[in-house]
Structures are given as C-alpha cells and as structure tokens.
Nucleic acid binder design. Structure first.
Ligand SMILES: NC(=O)c1ccc[n+]([C@@H]2O[C@H](COP(=O)([O-])OP(=O)(O)OC[C@H]3O[C@@H](n4cnc5c(N)ncnc54)[C@H](O)[C@@H]3O)[C@@H](O)[C@H]2O)c1
Ligand SMILES: NC(=O)c1ccc[n+]([C@@H]2O[C@H](COP(=O)([O-])OP(=O)(O)OC[C@H]3O[C@@H](n4cnc5c(N)ncnc54)[C@H](O)[C@@H]3O)[C@@H](O)[C@H]2O)c1
Lengths: 214, 214
DNA sequence: ACCACCTTGTGATTGTTTTCACAATCCATT
DNA sequence: AATGGATTGTGAAAACAATCACAAGGTGGT
C-alpha cells in the first residue's frame, strides 16, 4: 500500500505507533532481532491483525513466514513519527507543568529536544531549568530563528493562551501542543493538538459512578 | 432514552463532557441561563447533532423550541461525571510531575481533591506540597482508610510501576490513572486509564513530517 | 526442487461513531 | 385554542475503525 500522499491514516493508528516503538525498543534491548505480529500484539494487549493493518498504512515492513525485523521496524516507525528529525521544542510558560515537561527525559528518548523555555515573569528569566534556559517571551521570534525550534508547547494560564498563540504563530511555529484548558482559534495551516488532562481523570470518575450505581 | 444501565456509552462521548462542562460554566458566569445546541456547538467547534446525541445517552435535558437550561445541564453533567461526589485522589510519586499535578487547581474546579502524596524518598516524607502532605508509601493502606481516597495517580518511574500498582490494588483503590510509559497488568474489576503524553507530541511531529513531505 | 509449515498483507465483514433529516413538542402571540 | 417559529431527540444513513479469514509469499528441511 501507499506511495502517494492521499491515503488517510486513522488517528488511532498514529496514537499506537509510540507503543509499538516502546515495545520494539525492549525487544532490541533483549537481543531479539525478529518478532511476529502475534507475539508483539500479545505484549501490547491488542490483536495481531490490528498491528499488521496499522503498519500496512505505511508500507510492507514484514517478512512473510517470519515476522518483522526489530531494528528495521524501529527505523521505519522513527521515520513515520519524525523522530529521525530531532525536532526542537519551545515550552511557553515556565511554571509547574512547563518545568516538569522540560526535565522529562522521555522526549529525548523519542527524538525530541526541549531547546528553550519562555515566560514573562522577570524573576524566572535567565534561570536554567536543567540544561534549558528561560528566556523572555519577547525573544520568541529571535530565539526561534537562532535555535530552529518547530513545536511550541503552551503551559500558560488559559486566560492568556489565545494571545500567546497569536505570538507563537507570528514567530513562525507550525505546530502547537496546548495544555491550557481552552479552545484555541488557529488558522487552517497550523497543526494544533490539545492535551486535556482533566478528561482522563473524569473518565475514571464517571466509570466509578457507573460501576457503583448499577 | 435510558433508565436501565445496559446502554453502552461511547468513550468519545464521555471525553467531550468536560468540554461541555467548561463552556457551560462560562455561560453561567456571563449570566446566560438558556443555550441552544447550535450556539454551544459553534463555540466548541463541533456539530449540534453530536452535542444533542451525546446528551441523549444520559437523558432528556433540553426544552424543545428553547434549548438547554444552563445551570440544570451543568448539574446533570456534574452528576454523570461523578463531580458531585467530591472524589479524593492519592498521587503516588512526589516528583516533578506528581507535585505539578498536586498543585493544579483544575482538579478542585472539577470536584476532585488531591488528598495525599506518597513517595519512598525519605527526604520528601513529611513535607507539604501546597496543602497536601507527602507520606511514605508504606502508609498507603492506612491513609486510604483514614482519608477515603478512591483514585490513585501513578507518577513514578516506569520500572517500579507494576509493583506499585499491586500495592495500590491491595490497598483497595478501584481506579488508577497511570502516567508511567508502561502497560500495567490489572485485574478485570480495576478501572485503568493510561495517560501517555508522548503520543500527543509525536502526533504533531508526524503531521509535520507528512505536511512537509507531500 | 519440492513440500510442509509459518506469518504477512489485505479484501470482506462486522462493529462503532458521526452526521443527516425530520417528527415531536414546546413557547409566544394573538 | 390555534398558529407560527424554534429547537430538541432520535431513527436511518453514512463514515470510519477493528476484526476476520485467507491468498500470497516466505523459510527450512530433505
Ligand atoms: N499543573 C498541572 O498539573 C496542569 C495540569 C493540566 C493542565 N494544566 C494547565 O497548564 C497551564 C500551566 O499550568 P501550571 O500549573 O504550570 O501553572 P503555573 O502558574 O505554575 O505556570 C504558568 C506560567 O506561565 C507564565 N505566564 C503567564 N502569562 C504568560 C505569558 N503571557 N507568556 C508567557 N508565560 C506566561 C507564568 O509566569 C508561570 O510561570 C495552565 O493552563 C493549566 O491549566 C496544568
Ligand atoms: N515529567 C514529565 O513531564 C512526565 C511526562 C510524562 C510522563 N512522565 C512519567 O511520569 C513518571 C514520573 O515522572 P517525573 O518526571 O515526575 O519523575 P521524578 O523522578 O521527578 O519523580 C518520580 C518520583 O517517584 C518516586 N518513587 C520512585 N520509586 C517509588 C516507589 N516505589 N514508590 C513511590 N514513589 C517512588 C521518586 O522518589 C520520585 O519522587 C515517570 O514514569 C515519567 O515517565 C513524566
């Protein structure tokens, strides 16, 4: 399958690729060089046909009768997810959440690099958060050019999120990962991903209510 | 619709309820007491029929020809999501992410209360994180009984997540919100929700790659 | 070179979620 | 009480996603 760029890939498929990446890394670490879809899916708690279908959106990576070459498949997934590009990230809002994310080693492990933090609190400007410096928001455009960042992470209060979004877009960012609990208005060509943590725990709360109530 | 407990409610529907809650709160704040599905959906960037269908899973909350009573619908959604129960939460792992979550006012706003933090680092035990005390993990059972917590949030290293999960279940927690990037094995009756932050940003990275490559 | 066996890749099928479109019904006005 | 205008609630249709089931194609042994 594939070769032209017109194929629509389910969002659910893309969401599973990081899981595949992680379990493949474990196999790699254990010295397992070939893995069947059946075994890998078993480890992940999904069906083998779902795994195969997911991969088939991007190409024919397996060997019939044998399975998938672990390091080859790792390379393919890295490429699909852009992990081979070593993308640079700016975090806007050096508060509790922003600094927690800045120090998260999981990003580097997935080919992402937090390159700068931005804030407007003068007390924070110039400080280091781990190895990452905190700049004033007014430096956003400059530093983007200088450091080549592509993705902006918004960890700022909801009340300022829209206006900061506009600055971010003006600075030339093409992708925004938003943690503020607010719907952002962005132009068509900007890629926006909302991370709403309250959804997860309220889903739990709902299931608790249903279970006890039935 | 509804009255018996056998109706299956789409996960996607439940995930949207917190958004409805938020926008309804805004209307409430602005003194708007009645709202149509059309207007509300417009504000959220979804279709009005989706909003109406979502609500219809839980009951007939609207008034034909008029719309929905804002404060009534708020009350209904609170009940559906268990926000009226004022659920108490334990956070296991008082590290960067755990303490960021502990101080997040969004929980209280959604009827959730972070009641205790747990860790095994002696240096952290006894400290206060905001108004929340950090206890030793060995106190988990005691404190659960004492404080009546229902949901355990796991913000601990992936390497210890499975063993801590077993402690959490033994302590009597029925719901787990897991931030560690690992698949947890839990019994049937435990409600598990995984929060995988890497998925969000790798989705962005993937879309960046696709867009530039096409 | 053939055979027995294994696992992929994928059309067909089944299941789930969203959208459509309109009957039902409520409100306001006369 | 009857009419007109508005908006809900919901079956039916369409779109989307997961699973099934098997032909295609590969491996290893003889
Ligand atoms: N803390 C959490 O666990 C958590 C969880 C989910 C969502 N969120 C959301 O993430 C956002 C940040 O949360 P937090 O807990 O880190 O808050 P915080 O108050 O600790 O941090 C916010 C930071 O943003 C900075 N800031 C304010 N206005 C700014 C501007 N115009 N430009 C740049 N920086 C600005 C502040 O100086 C502060 O450092 C909020 O929208 C919150 O709702 C937080
Ligand atoms: N920091 C982030 O932004 C981020 C983002 C996504 C996921 N996560 C995940 O969340 C988890 C925590 O991340 P973090 O950055 O807060 O790490 P951290 O190292 O800052 O905190 C981990 C805490 O867990 C404690 N701990 C270790 N073993 C324990 C045990 N057996 N029982 C109780 N507590 C124990 C440690 O003492 C430490 O305080 C990790 O699994 C990480 O992968 C973190």
């Amino acid at each position: 399958m594939l070769s032209d760029g017109m194929v629509v890939i389910p969002q659910a498929t893309i969401s599973r690729l990081p899981l595949y990446f992680r379990v493949l890394n474990e196999y790699n670490h254990l010295g397992i060089s070939v893995i069947s879809s059946e075994e890998m899916a078993g480890n992940l708690g999904i069906t083998s046909s779902q795994l195969r279908k997911d991969l088939s959106y991007f190409g024919d990576f397996g060997i019939r009768g044998t399975g998938y070459d672990v390091s080859d498949l790792l390379k393919q997934i890295k490429e699909i997810l852009g992990m081979d590009k070593n993308r640079r990230i700016a975090i806007i809002g050096a508060g509790k959440l922003g600094t927690a994310l800045a120090g998260y080693p999981g990003f580097k492990m997935h080919g992402l690099e937090v390159t700068a933090l931005f804030d407007i609190d003068e007390a924070k400007i110039g400080q280091q958060e781990g190895k990452v410096e905190i700049f004033h928001l007014s430096e956003l455009s400059n530093k983007k050019r200088e450091l080549g960042m592509e993705i902006a992470v918004l960890t700022i209060p909801a009340s300022v999120a829209q206006q900061v979004t506009e600055l971010v877009i003006k600075a030339g960012f093409k992708a925004i990962w938003n943690f503020a609990p607010v719907r952002l208005e962005v132009p068509e060509h900007i890629i926006l991903q909302n991370e709403d943590l309250v959804v997860g725990i309220l889903t739990l709360s709902h299931h608790l209510s249903r279970k006890l109530g039935s």
